[in-house]
């Protein structure tokens, strides 16, 4: 297996994921900028697991190989699998981004409601301050009352 060129973007679509990202639409762009479907083989989670296993197995073979030519060949194959799996992970994280965006609004709404409670609580304190100011004002008027009477 020869290593693929990294500059070639993989035409990805979300595989079935056992995570929150399942519901999100995942796509990747081809060189023409239009979303392209995943190769059917990569839509199967089992296939992804096989790739992961293959990467690990090739890793063990790499460290067991004694000559540098074999090591280069094995690592070339690993690099290609690494790139495929990295693209899939980027796609999963992008799918999660959409879900985070949806959740952001809900969390901000809760914080807005909490801010409103803060305002109400401040109003209670403010009302007591106002009562205090009124008392002070009445006291002031009363102190000058003899001069007015």
């Amino acid at each position: 297996m020869s290593p693929s060129k990294s500059s070639t973007k993989l035409p990805l679509q979300a595989p079935a994921m056992p995570s929150a990202a399942t519901a999100a639409e995942v796509s990747s762009e081809t060189s023409s900028g239009t979303p392209a479907p995943l190769p059917p083989a990569l839509m199967n989670p089992d296939t992804i697991e096989i790739y992961k296993t293959l990467y690990d197995v090739l890793g063990r073979v790499y460290w067991e190989a004694s000559d540098i030519t074999s090591k280069d060949t094995i690592q070339g194959a690993r690099d290609a699998i690494y790139e495929i799996l990295t693209e899939l992970n980027i796609a999963k994280l992008e799918a999660n981004t959409a879900l985070f965006l949806a959740l952001k609004t809900k969390i901000l709404d809760s914080n807005k409601a909490l801010e409103e409670i803060k305002v109400k609580i401040n109003t209670i304190t403010k009302n007591i301050s106002t009562a205090s100011s009124v008392l002070a004002a009445i006291a002031k008027v009363a102190s000058i009352a003899p001069a007015l009477l």
């Binding site: 007591i128 205090s132 100011s133 008392l135 002070a136 000058i144």
Partner: peptide
Amino acid sequence: AACGANLRSLGDALSGAT
């Protein structure tokens, strides 16, 4: 605290003026 103090001042002012 200010409210209590002002209440006291009010009492003093009223007692002195009326």
